[in-house]
Amino acid sequence: MDTLRIACAHDVMYAPQYAGVSAGLFAEQSILLEFHRNNGTCEGTVGAVNRGEVDLLLGTCLYGVRLAETGVNPVIVAQSNQQTRHVLAQRATDLHDLQWSGLRGKAILVHPGQTPTAWAAFTYALNRSGLSLGEVKPIVGYTAEDAIGEFLRGVGDVLFVDGDSALRNDLRITLPVSRQAGRLPWSVYMVDRRQLEPKRELLLRFDKALDNSLKWLRGETTETIARALAPFFPHFSAERLLAIVQLHRDLDLWAQSSALQLDQVRRWSEALELGGLIAPGRQLRDYLDVL
């Protein structure tokens, strides 16, 4: 049995790897996964690679850009997620659903997250709907603890928030960002090129196991998936975990296959450039190679 150490945030959105472990799909490839848990920050994930504590990094492509800036030559091994789970939500008492074209002039209260990519996906979605940030009124500055409470109190017209946090009786998900932004290489596995050749055969087995895990997720019921994930997320009640899994399925969060989709990479490059997260004229492929 070969061991692969993975740096990633401990999150249900990364269900493919946990479901694959639970279903024995990685064991079938003689692979044991070990998860280097951290707070999901850039330093926590990128730093783990730089310090040689892990074999793979799972997260946003921006982590790969950061790795490249620290002198590492990152290579994308596989894709896990193809969507952002961020949404625009309204109050449960709001009578009329907003449409993207109806956001012009609306005040959008922003629930803060840990990475800027969700906002980049939103601005990209807004752009695809024919609007710009100058045509809406972002409200920023509230803490994550206060943002939802202030929105429910009446601040803002719509709430920009991750979908998991919007799973409340007093909120209603109206506009998933992914429906407007389209599929994107949201979460990918990356390796330092110096480890690529020594581990190539192992990484190819990993890719096959992950692909089988993604197929398993598409073929199983929400209840079966939630039960498979439960040992990895004991802090969630069965009801809460079931609701999160159903939301992620509704959003089509997980990739269709482990193979990186280059058309998604191209569009995500456009979105990140639009959001100011990569330099004008640069592409993600300028920073990241693909296995």
Rank of each mutant, 00 (worst) to 15 (best):
Met1Tyr: 03
Met1Ala: 10
Thr3Gly: 08
Arg5Thr: 15
Cys8Asn: 10
Ala9Ile: 14
His10Arg: 15
Ala15Trp: 06
Phe26Val: 05
Ala27Ser: 12
Ser30Tyr: 03
Leu33Ala: 03
His36Gln: 13
Asn38Gly: 13
Gly40His: 04
Cys42Ile: 13
Gly44Cys: 04
Val46Met: 08
Leu56Ile: 14
Gly59Tyr: 02
Thr60Glu: 12
Thr70Ile: 03
Pro74Phe: 04
Pro74Gly: 02
Val77Phe: 07
Gln79Asn: 07
Asn81Val: 06
Gln82Glu: 06
Arg85Leu: 11
His86Ser: 14
Ala92Ser: 12
Leu95Thr: 11
His96Ala: 14
Leu98Pro: 04
Leu98Glu: 05
Arg104Val: 12
Gly105Thr: 04
Gln114Thr: 07
Thr115Ser: 14
Phe122His: 11
Leu126Phe: 09
Leu126Asn: 08
Arg128Ala: 10
Ser129Asn: 13
Ser129Leu: 05
Ser129Pro: 05
Ser132Asn: 12
Val136Ile: 15
Lys137Val: 15
Ile139His: 01
Ile139Lys: 04
Glu145Ala: 15
Gly149Ala: 12
Gly149Tyr: 02
Phe151Asp: 09
Leu152Met: 10
Arg153Lys: 13
Asp157Thr: 10
Val158Pro: 02
Val158Ser: 07
Val158Cys: 11
Leu159Pro: 04
Ser165Gly: 02
Ala166Phe: 01
Leu167Met: 08
Arg168Asp: 01
Asn169Phe: 08
Asn169Gln: 13
Asp170Tyr: 07
Arg172Met: 03
Arg172Gln: 10
Leu175Asp: 06
Ala181Ser: 15
Gly182His: 06
Ser187Cys: 11
Met190Gln: 14
Val191Phe: 13
Gln195Ile: 03
Leu196Ser: 03
Pro198Trp: 05
Lys199His: 14
Lys199Cys: 09
Lys199Thr: 04
Phe206Tyr: 14
Asp207Leu: 05
Asp207His: 13
Ala209His: 00
Ala209Lys: 01
Asn212Phe: 05
Leu214Ile: 04
Arg218Cys: 01
Gly219Pro: 01
Ile225Glu: 02
Ala226Trp: 11
Arg227Thr: 10
Pro231His: 13
Phe232Glu: 14
Pro234Glu: 06
Ser237Cys: 04
Glu239Phe: 00
Glu239Cys: 07
Ile244Glu: 01
Ile244Met: 08
Val245Arg: 12
Val245Pro: 02
Ser257Gly: 15
Ser258Cys: 08
Ala259Asp: 13
Leu260Asp: 04
Gln261Asn: 15
Asp263Gly: 01
Trp268Cys: 13
Glu270Val: 05
Gly281Leu: 06
Asp286Gly: 07
Tyr287Leu: 03
Leu291Cys: 11
Leu291Trp: 10
